[in-house]
Simulated assay, not measured.
Amino acid sequence: MSDSLRNKVVVVTGASSGIGRSIVLETAGRGATTILIARNKEKLEEISAEAKELSGADSFVFPTDLGKSDEIEKTFKEIIASVQHIDFLVNAAGFGKFENFMDSNMKDATNMFQVNVLGLMYLTRLVGRVMMEQKTGQIINFGSIAGKVPTTKSAAYSASKAAVIQFSNVLRLELKPFGVKVMTVNLGPVYTNFFNIADQTGEYVKNVQEFMLDPDDVAWQVVHYFGSNKRELNLPLSLAVAAKLYNLFPTIGDKISLDFASRK
């Protein structure tokens, strides 16, 4: 591994598993100081120990419920007391639940927006101000292909990710004068424990095997664009093309989605 991120500080939410975990280890392998945020302290400490071995640098653990603004505020203050600067913020935390909206519990939708959107916005606002003062930094927000292409049984989740995408687009414009970059990562299905909650029947995972992404491969591609001016990273390519075509031909796109893409 190179030392391309030596002396850089990387904050990662959702760091206890899946893509967040992979990004922590990928950046640590490049020498970064890592800051891990998620709810599960035990898992965070295990990953932090591995990150220290890879980087030879510090790694900090902050167990936090990103659905609670008071915990986010407390964690942010502790981060600022621990490091001198923040170079990258990766907002990888989030969850979904796949079911017909009319049959769903609105509490689930509220919780999804609290974590996927409002928690992300709250932490981004705090860290973004630090980056504005530094006149440098990059924020990477995880949206989803689901925020671009509609499929059944994902109304609330897709809406939360569409909100993240548009929030990121506006934030990019507002922070550009301060030298702070914003990139959105929009993924199709990924081999993570996300589906333990989202797809409890296992049907969706079985039906989308051909599109499944490996979290380590995703992490490598995301970190590859650290410091770049890239606006969006959309994966896999097949679904990225589908998203573009949907915008051009939405009526046909709806039919295709109903016939082929809504495999939940």
Rank of each mutant, 00 (worst) to 15 (best):
D3P: 11
S4F: 10
L5D: 02
R6Q: 15
R6M: 14
V9L: 05
V9I: 13
G14S: 09
S16R: 03
S16P: 06
S16M: 01
S17W: 10
S17I: 13
G18S: 09
I19V: 14
G20P: 00
R21K: 13
T27P: 00
G29F: 06
G31Y: 05
L36K: 02
I37S: 02
I37H: 01
A38Q: 04
A38E: 05
K41M: 15
K41S: 15
E42L: 12
K43N: 14
L44M: 12
A49F: 11
A49C: 10
A51I: 04
E53P: 04
G56K: 13
A57I: 06
A57T: 12
D58K: 01
F60T: 10
F60L: 14
F62W: 04
T64E: 02
I79H: 00
A81W: 12
A81H: 12
S82L: 04
F88V: 13
L89I: 12
L89Q: 03
L89K: 03
N91D: 06
K97Q: 05
F101I: 07
M102I: 14
M102H: 13
D103K: 07
N105L: 15
N105M: 15
D108C: 04
D108A: 09
G119L: 05
M121N: 12
M121E: 13
Y122S: 12
L123M: 12
T124F: 04
L126D: 06
V127W: 00
V127Y: 00
R129Q: 14
Q134V: 11
Q134A: 05
K135L: 07
I139Q: 02
I139V: 14
I139M: 05
N141Q: 12
F142E: 02
G143W: 00
G143T: 02
S144K: 04
S144V: 07
A146S: 10
G147R: 01
G147L: 05
K148V: 00
K148H: 13
V149M: 03
A155M: 11
Y157L: 13
Y157F: 15
S158I: 06
A159E: 02
A159F: 07
S160M: 00
A163I: 06
A163G: 08
Q166N: 07
S168P: 00
V170F: 07
R172I: 04
R172G: 04
L175K: 01
L175R: 05
K176E: 12
K176I: 05
T184Q: 03
V185A: 07
P189L: 09
Y191K: 15
Y191M: 13
Y191D: 15
T192E: 10
N193M: 14
N193F: 11
F194V: 12
F195R: 00
F195N: 08
A198Q: 09
D199K: 06
Q200T: 12
Q200H: 09
G202C: 08
N207V: 06
N207Y: 07
F211H: 09
L213E: 03
Q221A: 07
H224V: 09
F226E: 01
G227C: 09
G227H: 08
S228T: 13
N229K: 07
E232Q: 12
L233M: 08
N234K: 05
L237M: 12
A240V: 08
V241I: 10
V241N: 00
L245N: 00
F249E: 02
P250C: 03
I252R: 11
I252F: 11
D254C: 01
D254Q: 05
S257A: 06
L258K: 15
L258W: 13
D259M: 14
D259S: 14
D259F: 10
S262F: 03
S262I: 03
R263V: 15
R263K: 14
